[in-house]
Amino acid sequence: MRKHYAGGTKDAGLNGFDLTVRRGSVCGLLGPNGAGKTTAIRVLATLLELDSGQAQVAGFDVTTQARQVRENIGLVGQYAAIDEIMSGRQNLIMFGRLNHLSSREADKRADALLEQFDLAEAARLPVAKYSGGMRRRLDLAVSLIVSPPVLFVDEPTTGLDPVGRREVWAAIRSRVADGTTVLLTTQYLEEADQLADRISMLKAGRVIAEGTPDELKGALGGDWLDIVLPLDTDKSVVMRIVESVASGPIQADDEANRISVPVIERTRALVTVARALADAQIEPQDLSLRRPTLDEVFIHLTSTNEPEAQLEPTL
């Protein structure tokens, strides 16, 4: 898919965005600000026209069969799209009616959703008086009035506290359990890790990496050896030691007093470093091996200029 915004920069919009999501699975779309996540969702939700290329949602073409696509999708936009003057309950009832529920069904569904999203107490308050998290939950509730086979969720938990985030995740999971296909964008890698079966990383309107969370983590090549040092340690000595086992650039986090070393042969590296540290009379506070986090993959991929070349061989 290609989409260029009039007046946008060269990289803005979509530049050869390509994505396949298996029916019934959850796809996480990750990307930095301005990567084109919202643009992609808006195109797929028939809100924005493509310049070129084509897209099918639930088997229908977004351009030529927009109405059928709309019958099959639910959309939770990046910013809560609810009526601020009306109460939460009135919003739910209105959207229930627009989904052609009978007035009794709409009432019932509204109350059930208010209960499910912990909004029952604020049900009759105008939305303008809701907190950001309450709005987000109401917004999600509105899109769950009926259960379309495909659900688009654009950054569902931005600005939510951990409890709110968990509630939203639970709601999305219950939808997934019902067989809904979900396309989710997020800034939080943990969220993608938690919810998504497959993750596509997006940069400048293009997918630069795609795979399961584990595959992506493996794509950085090998594991990380974390060494947490006492405050007064001479880091240069440690650096000299770890350089011999490092398979890539070493990351030093001065605040946490931690050095992270990418390694290929995990146990040998661990033993080598432990022995050398002991010889140098340095006693680390912690010494551990771990898989790279998605954050590291994300930062690695989005900060390099030719990401495609780097990742493709390993995937």
């Binding site: 808006r42 939700a45 028939t46 809100l47 709309r70 999708i73 959309l75 936009g77 910013y79 809560a80 799209a81 609810i82 009526d83 601020e84 959207f95 627009l98 509105v142």
Partner: peptide, 9 residues
């Protein structure tokens, strides 16, 4: 506010 978009979708 995006309400129109919600209607449109």
């Amino acid at each position: 506010k995006g309400i129109t978009d919600r209607f449109r979708a």
